[in-house]
Simulated assay, not measured.
Amino acid sequence: MRERIERNALRGAPMIWIRTSLAATGLAVATAIPASAEIVASTCRLLSYDGNITSVETFRCDFMQRGGNVMVNSAEHEFSFLAAEQGETYIRINSIPLRFTRTGEFTLEVTQSPWLR
């Protein structure tokens, strides 16, 4: 009786190994495929600092975020904010509007919605 139980237990072992391997492979493939980022039509407001002079420009832009990295593009401007550089080369404030500041250079405000005037 004991031998039969041991043989039956050993028969199921390869199936457990196969299921575990398939699950691990599926998880590895799912995490390796980069997630696509949605492009959101937005309104941008750029405050540029030049000494005591601050210029303000409002324009249409596209906002895209993937893995914490942000890209904001328009016909006139391109901005890239890498997640690894947050707090080092720029400050991000998660509010409405979303704000990115490069101290002494500019602040970019992004409102994720169609064109606002």
Rank of each mutant, 00 (worst) to 15 (best):
Glu57His: 13
Ile39Tyr: 02
Val29His: 09
Ala41Ile: 06
Pro14Tyr: 05
Arg45Ser: 03
Ala13Thr: 08
Glu38Thr: 08
Met15His: 11
Ser42Cys: 05
Ala35Arg: 09
Ala32Gly: 02
Thr54Met: 09
Thr58Arg: 10
Val29Ser: 09
Gly51Val: 12
Ala23Ser: 15
Thr31Trp: 05
Ser21Val: 11
Leu47Thr: 01
Ala23Gly: 13
Pro34Glu: 12
Tyr49Phe: 15
Ile18Asn: 11
Val40Tyr: 02
Val29Asn: 05
Leu27Asn: 10
Ser42Gly: 06
Gly26Val: 12
Gly12His: 05
Thr54Val: 15
Ser55Gly: 13
Ser55Met: 13
Arg11Ile: 13
Ser55His: 12
Glu57Asn: 15
Thr58Val: 13
Pro14Phe: 09
Ser48Phe: 04
Thr25Gln: 08
Ala37Ile: 03
Ala30Leu: 13
Ile39Asn: 07
Gly26Leu: 12
Asn52Gln: 07
Leu47Asp: 03
Thr20Lys: 11
Ser21Arg: 06
Leu47Pro: 01
Ala28His: 11
Ala35Val: 07
Leu47Ala: 07
Ala28Arg: 12
Glu38Ile: 08
Gly12Pro: 00
Ile33Ala: 06
Ile53Tyr: 07
Thr54Gln: 12
Thr31Ile: 11
Leu22Tyr: 14
Ser36Gln: 13
Thr43Glu: 01
Gly12Leu: 14
Ala23Phe: 15
Thr58Gly: 09
Gly12Met: 14
Ala32Ser: 10
Gly51Asn: 06
Arg19Pro: 02
Ser21Ile: 12
Thr31Ala: 08
Ala30Met: 10
Ala24Ser: 10
Ser42Asn: 01
Leu47His: 08
Ile33Lys: 10
Thr43Phe: 00
Ala13Asp: 00
Arg19Ala: 14
Ala35Thr: 08
Ser36Tyr: 03
Ile18Trp: 11
Leu22Glu: 13
Cys44Phe: 03
Val56Asn: 05
Cys44Asp: 01
Thr20Pro: 00
Phe59Leu: 12
Ala23Arg: 09
Val40Phe: 06
Ala37Thr: 06
Leu46Phe: 02
Ser55Tyr: 08
Phe59Gly: 03
Arg45Gly: 05
Val56Asp: 04
Thr31Glu: 03
Trp17Asp: 02
Pro34Phe: 09
Ala23Asn: 07
Val29Gly: 03
Asp50Thr: 02
Ala30Lys: 08
Arg19Phe: 07
Ala35Phe: 03
Val56Lys: 04
Ala24Thr: 10
Ile39Trp: 00
Ala35His: 06
Ala30Phe: 09
Gly26Gln: 05
Leu27His: 07
Ser36Ala: 09
Glu57Gly: 08
Ala28Val: 14
Thr20Asp: 09
Asp50Met: 00
Thr20Arg: 11
Asp50Pro: 00
Ala37Trp: 04
Val40Trp: 01
Gly51Glu: 06
Ile53Glu: 10
Leu22Met: 15
Gly26Phe: 07
Gly26His: 04
